[in-house]
């Protein structure tokens, strides 16, 4: 399996604080890698550094073996990395249709991808002409994911898609991510371990700014002690 993205000993300073202090991450193609960790561990900072919003103080981020250092976010996106942050990166004053058109509107492939996205998220059809700012939290996440699907990047960076969603919506989200994993490579930041274990093939745990554990998700599911130690889960594995 080819490695799409590799992060080596990444250090990032933010507002005078040394936030990332040695993050290592490998994202293999055609798999879902889940970035886990407690609040404030540095997961979102890692995503933002990969996308070029934050400059690395040390370390390297490479894409298909080529360093991404010095590239601007739009140049990184053009190399095939799609990003959906916590808030979805939607344009609240534009309609659902306009938000989806932001990633291009031409070609039969685009039409097919749009159709696939709307089949996965039928709610978006009914909200087609509504402004994104008026959608519910769940619909916003759907729109964010649909836009990633339409853009069809080689790697999707998805940051806490379950945040703020009801348990029912989280189940629906898990089902959607399971569909996506069949055709896409995903790097997912997720606090909800129940969701992470359902969709993840691999995991990487960040704690206090550095990578402390990584491997196959099946291993982490087996190890209740790791879950307690690194994720702060106070219950036995398998429960939320």
């Amino acid at each position: 399996m080819e490695t799409l993205l590799e992060v080596t000993n990444l250090h990032v300073n933010l507002a005078g604080y040394h936030i990332l202090q040695g993050v290592n991450l490998t994202v293999p193609e055609h798999a879902v890698t889940v970035l886990l960790g407690r609040n404030g561990a540095g997961k979102t900072t890692t995503m933002r550094a990969i996308m070029g919003y934050l400059r690395a103080a040390a370390g390297e981020i490479s894409w298909r073996g080529q360093p991404l250092a010095g590239l601007r976010p739009y140049q990184i996106a053009r190399r095939g990395i799609g990003y959906m942050p916590e808030e979805g990166h939607l344009f609240g004053n534009l309609t659902v249709q306009e938000n989806l058109a932001m990633v291009g509107t031409k070609g039969t492939q685009h039409a097919a991808r749009l159709e696939r996205a709307l089949t996965l998220f039928p709610d978006l059809r009914t909200a087609w002409a509504r402004r994104a700012g008026t959608l519910s939290g769940g619909q916003k996440q759907m729109l964010g994911l649909a836009r990633l699907l339409v853009a069809d990047p080689a790697l999707m960076l998805i940051d806490e898609p379950s945040k703020g969603l009801s348990p029912g919506m989280v189940e629906a989200l898990a089902a959607t991510l399971c569909v996506l994993r069949e055709t896409s490579t995903i790097l997912l930041v997720e606090q909800n371990f129940h969701l992470a274990r359902q969709v993840g093939d691999y995991f990487s745990v960040i704690d206090e700014g550095h990578t402390c554990l990584s491997g196959a998700m099946a291993q982490l599911v087996e190890r209740a002690d790791w879950q307690r130690q690194y994720l702060g889960l106070a219950v036995t594995s398998g429960e939320v």
Binding site: P73, Y74, A77, H89, T105
Partner: peptide
């Protein structure tokens, strides 16, 4: 046009437009 929509996106949030691969 799609260009016009990207411009409206820039008005709302330049960073978000960058993430979609557009040069602001």
């Amino acid at each position: 046009s799609p260009v016009g929509q990207v411009l409206q996106g820039i008005r709302e949030n330049e960073g978000r437009v960058l993430a979609l691969g557009h040069s602001v």
